[in-house]
Design a protein around this nucleic acid. Sequence first.
DNA 1: TGCATTTCTTGATTTTTGTCAAGAGCAAGC
DNA 2: GCTTGCTCTTGACAAAAATCAAGAAATGCA
Lengths: 189, 189
Amino acid sequence: MTELEKYIHTYFGVNKEELTKISSFFKPMTLRKGDYFLKTGRHSDRLGFVQTGIVREFVFIDEKEVTKWISTKGYFVVDLSSFVFQQSARWNIQALTDCELYIIDSKDYQKIGQVIPRWTELEKLFIAKCFTVLEDRVLQHLSMTAEERYNQLFNFNRELFNQVPLQYLASMLGMTPETLSRLRKKAAG
Amino acid sequence: MTELEKYIHTYFGVNKEELTKISSFFKPMTLRKGDYFLKTGRHSDRLGFVQTGIVREFVFIDEKEVTKWISTKGYFVVDLSSFVFQQSARWNIQALTDCELYIIDSKDYQKIGQVIPRWTELEKLFIAKCFTVLEDRVLQHLSMTAEERYNQLFNFNRELFNQVPLQYLASMLGMTPETLSRLRKKAAG
DNA sequence: TGCATTTCTTGATTTTTGTCAAGAGCAAGC
DNA sequence: GCTTGCTCTTGACAAAAATCAAGAAATGCA
C-alpha cells in the first residue's frame, strides 16, 4: 500500500479494492525547491498530494506575503476555488523543499466518481471535515494570544520549526517574525 | 416562491420543481429571544434556515463566551460535526431575537437525496463554498488589524451594529468590547 | 573554503490592544 | 414611572505586539 493509498484510506475509509482504483488516477510529479505548483490568478485543474517535502500556500496582500498554510507529507494541496469552481486561483502554492507529489487533473478526478459510486458523498464528508478544522482555526484567532497560538503549534508539530523558515510560520500564526523569535526565546528559557 | 426557496435557489441553483420538493421537507419553527436551537455537548440532527430574526453561534472557552458567527435572514444554522458526523455539538446556537426558522432533521434531509439525484454534488459544492469563505476569514486575522476588521464588517453590514449587542460583534471580530467601542468612536469622529 | 545573501535575533521604541474600574445610557419588568 | 440590571463608554494604566534598526547566524553558491 503506497503512502497515497494509506492516507486516502485514513481520510475516506474506502476498501483496498477501491483504493487501488482511486490511486491509479494519480500521477507522480516532482517539484524542485522554489518551484510553483500554482500561482495566483492562473487557472488550475490540479489536485496534489504531498508524498515528501514541504509546500507553502500563500498570497500577497498589500505587497506582503501572507502564508495561509504549510503542507507536509500526507496533505492535499489544491486551490478549491479553481479546482471546484473553475475560477482563477486565489493562492500561490510553492515548494519549500524538493517535493514528490501525486497529482490528478479534474478530468481524471471526475472518473473517480464513475468508479466509486459513493465518491461524491466521501468528498462531501472530507470537505466538511476540513471545514470544521478551519472553524477551529478561526476560533483560535478569536480566543488565543500570539503566544498561545505559538505554543499550540509548537506542541502539535515541533519538527516544523526545524524544517520551515520561521518567517513563514510567523505569518501562518498571524504574527511578525520578531514576535515569533521572542516567543521562542521565552518558551525555551 | 418562499424566502427559503429563494435562498436555496441562490445557493444551489436548482430549478423550480426541485425547489418545491426540497423545501417541502422543511418545517417551520419559532424561537423566542434567548431560546437555544442547540447547546454544546448535546446531539443534534437538525439543520435550520433563518427566515427572520438573529441567531448567534458561540462557545465557552475558559469560562468566556466566544461568538463564532451571527446569522441573519438567509443563513443556515447548523453544527456540522453533529449534523454530518453524528458527534456531540461544538456550538451553542441561541436566538438573539424572536426568530422564524425552517428546520429539517437528518432523516428528512436524507430524503432530499432520494428526490434530487445530484443533491450530494450540490451539497459538496455548497460546503466547498463555505470553506472558501472561512479561508478568507482566517486570512483576515492573519493580515488585518482589529481596526481593519471592524471597518470591513461595518462597511459590509452596518445594520448589524444596530441589531446585535456590540459585545457579541466584538467577540466575533476578535477584540474586546472596549476596543470595539473605541474603534466606533474613532470611525464616527 | 570563503564570500554574499538571506534569515534570524535582539534592543529600543511606538502603537495597538487588553484590563480594570467607574459611570452613563437603556431597556425590561414591576 | 421607577427601579434594577444590563450594556456601552470612557479613562487610566498595563500588557502585547508591531516597527525600525542593527548585528549575528545560517545558508547558498562559486
